[in-house]
Design a protein around this nucleic acid. Structure first.
Lengths: 338, 338
DNA sequence: TTGAAAGCGATACCAA
DNA sequence: TTGGTATCGCTTTCAA
């Protein structure tokens, strides 16, 4: 009992194989009667198309591959949901290929890899040069998302502008500045998001001749923020540490700082000012000002750009940049008169 | 300029197409001379095989799909790395299909979905009945990992035994018991890991006639643990809260509890005892006893079971259970004489 | 050891 | 509106 094919369906329905194919692909100029006969024949034999045969003949897979790191789940959840939503509407399916450890890049150099059995490729949060060197083993459309490179279609945030935006708000408050930075992990393949945010912040500060009174470093997590807050308390001891304006390079860091300092009796917006990056819901709930990035919108746009490239438009490299917006909250509003 | 095929390579090398195929597939009985000619012809035209044609002809894709939730990154990172390591050695490539929101299950009901263009399927941390109802639209080997079901090959932890193990250690210390549980999220598709751990814990406690003096609930994260610790302090106020033995259903929870209570002046292993689940490196570093689960080993075993099924062995359903081990640390050792 | 030819299952063209 | 047939690129007999 072998899997039924179009020929089987055609025989049952009493039509030709090409007619079955037409019904399958919603071609016009099929009489309602034959369509019904074909559909019920499909039903009775339990036919499902062979994707390999279809792809071989048509040259298309109706699939898009996404290459991405395995970190940052909430971010990728939002991003992928947005991307999938758009592509799904256009009949494309999505397969994910995570980078499992920096060592396994070999796998991506092989043009025969499963990853490349697709009509298009989305590369998320990665520099393709690091992965491929000069050029990738894939001559169909590629779009970078949450990363940018002059030779690829790129859809990304303007992280430098985000850093500048944070620094400008900071300066307007005329307080000593504390920078909470994220350490660079060696061999890191990830997007230079923190590097760019930092560059934006420092650019504006330097232009105004301001230097942070202290720069802390901690991994970009809530716990990291707590550690940094403790570092700050230790550093300040025995001097009073407030008031100051802390710029944390991520919302998680800012959240951790806020919670830790709160337990030390310091209130954000009263004793010190604080802001983060990402525009997360958690930051908003906690009353922390944040430089927001439209993740879902970026995902949708990346999908749109890829679709454009798949349809053969887009002769020239597309670069889409999303500007940050300020999500203001009490954490930066109260000390303005000091 | 169309993509070169075996015929192009054959023409350049001055051989037949079938000879090229034999070289490609490392068939024996090829003279070294022709092999070299073919290989250099492949090189000069830049040939890469068409996977669709190959799969169509052979009926195999050399691919395995993994269906998984998008949460729990460190866990899946370890698990997938282990799975990929084994399958890669056997010539299989891996594609991931995350559940993007509980709503999009529709996508998985379609037998024509990209997900099913594979020789085998790994379903991680999911109950297939929830996804598919009675049976999945895929008649090739399926293996469940970090989940179990009597009708599927399953490779999973014995979470109930883990819970029992924790409860037994707890009882041996003769202290009031505090249970830190994880709330059930409605509509949750994830594996019943917490449910099973809780069942194991409560089973042993009940059998000994012990009831927790208080049961707390918090999301399974470090921050959740901190919140729970504060709940506990509030609940105990103004009574002294220590000594007690807290069983937290995850290491992250235990870590959060430890850190929060520490800042309240309470030391694990001195003022109270504490343990978690998962055997994480972070728990070990923090000196917290944990019921450990061999994640990488489970991944390798799941891959092995799938390979067995792919090779046609395995006529009967395979169930592999991994027993927990106790990763003891100071957090449960000091108060034994009380 | 090698080549010719059949065939995997679909789609697309050309006739009718 | 439909059917016949060539074709996609590869692997696998079957002969030589």
């Amino acid at each position: 009992m072998t899997k039924p094919s179009v020929v089987d369906v055609a025989r049952i329905a009493g039509v030709g194989a090409s007619t079955v194919s037409r019904v399958l692909n919603n071609h016009p100029n099929i009489s309602d009667q034959t369509r019904q006969r074909v559909l019920s024949a499909i039903e009775t034999v339990g036919y499902t198309p062979n994707l390999n045969a279809r792809s071989l003949r048509s040259g298309q897979t109706q699939a898009v591959s996404v290459l991405l790191p395995m970190t940052g789940t909430p971010f990728y959840d939002t991003l992928l949901t947005a991307i999938h939503g758009v592509l799904d509407q256009h009949g494309y399916d999505l397969a994910l290929f995570p980078l499992l450890g920096a060592q396994r890049i070999r796998r991506f150099k092989d043009p025969g890899a499963l990853l490349y059995r697709a009509d298009g490729l989305l590369i998320s949060s990665q520099n393709p040069e690091v992965l491929y060197g000069s050029r990738p083993p894939f001559n169909k459309p590629i779009v970078l998302v949450d990363a940018h490179h002059p030779q690829y279609h790129s859809v990304h945030f303007n992280n430098v502008a985000a850093g500048r935006m944070a620094a400008e708000l900071t300066l307007s408050r005329h307080l000593p500045v504390v920078l909470l930075d994220v350490p660079v992990r060696p061999g890191d393949l990830e997007s230079p998001v923190f590097l760019e945010r930092r560059a934006g912040v420092l650019d504006v500060l330097q232009r105004h001749g301001i230097t942070p009174i202290v720069t802390l470093q901690a991994p970009a997590s809530i716990e990291g923020g707590r550690d940094a807050a403790q570092q700050l308390l230790d550093w300040a001891h025995p001097h009073p540490v407030a008031p100051f304006f802390m710029v944390a390079l991520s919302d998680d860091l800012a959240l951790g700082v806020q919670r830790h300092l709160l337990s030390a009796g310091l209130h954000a917006g009263r004793d010190y000012l604080l802001m983060g990056f990402d525009g997360s819901a958690a930051a908003a709930e906690a009353g922390i000002t944040s430089v927001a990035q439209p993740v879902a919108q970026m995902g949708r746009t990346a999908a749109d750009v890829l679709l454009g490239a798949l349809e053969g438009q887009l002769k020239t490299i597309t670069q889409r940049t999303f500007a940050p917006t300020l999500q203001e909250a009490p954490s930066t509003q109260a000390l303005t008169l000091m």
